[in-house]
C-alpha cells in the first residue's frame, strides 16, 4: 500500500547540518532504521513534513566502550549489538535483550535509540537502560544535553526530547562491581512478539540488585521497593515471596488484546522469581548461557 502522506527527505552529512535543518523545520522526524517510523507514516500516525535520515552520520553509528561506559550510538542496530564483541564480553544481558527483539530482518534496521524514542510501553530497551542507570545523550543547536534514562520516559509515546534535538546515543556505565543479569520477556509464543511483560534483573556482587519492569507499566520503572527489600539480604524463599507480594505495588498492568491484567501480574511474579534465580546463578558462575529463555 502506498504512503499517501507527502514529505521531504534529507540525509545530512554532519550532525551540525542535521541540527540546522531540524531547527528550521516545523515537524521533522528522525529516520534511523525506519521500522517504526515508516509504519507510522503509512498508518498516518506520523505526518512529518521532513524526514531526516541520520544513517550518514558516522559518529552516531558506533558502539564503543570508553571510561567504563558503553556508548550505543543512535544508528546502532539490534543486530550490531548482537554481533558486538564488547557487548558479548561486558554486557551480555544486552545481547540477551537484543536477541528477543523482533526478528533478524527487523533487527538489521531497528535501533535501541529508535526504540526509546518511539517509547511504546512494550519496548524492550526501556527496562534495559533504566536498570543500567543509563544516560540519554542529546544534541541540539544550543549544545548537548544528558538525561538519565529514568527521566527520559514521560508517558507512553512521550519522551523528554525537545524540538530541534537529536538523540545521539545512550551511555551505560559499567557497574563498579562484578555483576550478572537476566532478561525475561513474555511473548505469546517463542517467535517474535511484542512483550506482554518484560523485566531485567542485575545482580551485583555487593549484594545489591537492580530490577526494572516494562510492558506492565506506562513507562519502564525500577522496582525500588523490591530492590530495597532485597539489597544486602540473603535471598531466601521467604524473602522472594515477600518480594513477589510487592510486585503489584510496582506495576500497573492493563488488559488488552495481548494479555489480561491478571495474567500479566501472575507472569510478572513468575518471571521475577526465575529471573532473579538466573541472575544470581550467573553471578555465581553456574547460570545458563545468556540468550536462554527462562520461561
Amino acid at each position: 500500500m502506498p504512503i499517501i502522506h507527502k514529505f521531504d527527505y534529507l540525509k545530512p552529512k554532519s550532525l551540525s547540518e542535521a541540527l540546522t535543518v531540524l531547527a528550521q523545520s516545523k515537524n521533522a522526524a528522525i529516520l534511523a532504521g525506519g521500522t517504526d517510523l515508516v509504519d507510522m507514516i503509512k498508518e498516518n500516525v506520523a505526518q512529518p513534513d521532513l524526514v531526516v535520515d541520520i544513517k550518514g552520520l558516522d559518529e552516531l553509528n558506533q558502539i564503543k566502550f570508553e571510561n567504563d561506559t558503553l556508548f550505543i550510538g543512535a544508528g546502532a542496530t539490534f543486530s550490531d549489538l548482537i554481533e558486538s564483541k564488547i557487548i558479548k564480553e561486558k554486557y551480555p544481558v544486552i545481547f540477551e535483550v537484543a536477541k528477543t527483539v523482533a526478528s533478524v530482518g527487523i533487527r538489521n534496521r531497528a535501533t535501541v535509540v529508535g526504540n526509546i524514542c518511539s517509547a511504546v510501553p512494550c519496548m524492550d530497551s526501556g527496562p534495559l537502560l533504566i536498570a543500567y542507570d543509563a544516560t540519554v545523550q542529546l544534541a541540539g543547536q544550543k549544545g548537548e544535553r544528558k538525561i538519565p534514562a529514568a527521566e527520559w520516559f514521560i508517558a507512553p509515546r512521550k519522551t523528554a526530547l525537545q524540538k530541534g534535538e537529536i538523540v545521539t546515543g545512550v551511555s551505560l556505565p559499567y557497574p563498579k562491581v562484578k555483576h550478572a543479569g537476566c532478561w525475561v520477556k513474555l511473548g505469546r509464543y517463542t517467535g517474535e512478539d511484542l512483550a506482554q511483560v518484560n523485566l531485567l534483573i542485575l545482580a551485583l556482587s555487593d549484594g545489591t540488585f537492580r530490577i526494572s519492569f516494562g510492558a506492565v507499566v506506562p513507562i519502564p520503572v525500577r522496582a525500588k521497593k523490591i530492590e530495597k527489600l532485597l539489597n544486602g539480604q540473603t535471598i531466601t524463599p521467604s524473602l522472594i515471596e515477600k518480594a513477589k507480594q510487592l510486585i503489584e505495588e510496582e506495576i500497573k498492568p492493563i488488559t488488552d488484546v495481548r494479555a489480561t491484567k491478571e495474567y500479566r501480574i501472575h507472569m510478572a511474579k513468575v518471571m521475577f522469581e526465575r529471573g532473579l534465580d538466573a541472575a544470581i546463578r550467573r553471578l555465581n558462575g553456574n547460570g545458563q548461557a545468556y540468550g536462554t529463555s527462562m520461561i
Binding site: R188, Y189, T190, G191, E192, L194, V257, R258
Partner: peptide, 15 residues
Amino acid sequence: INPNFTDYKIPTSMD
C-alpha cells in the same frame, strides 16, 4: 481488533 500478524499470532519457525 487484531487484523494483523502483530496480534493474530500465526506460528513462526520457532514454534
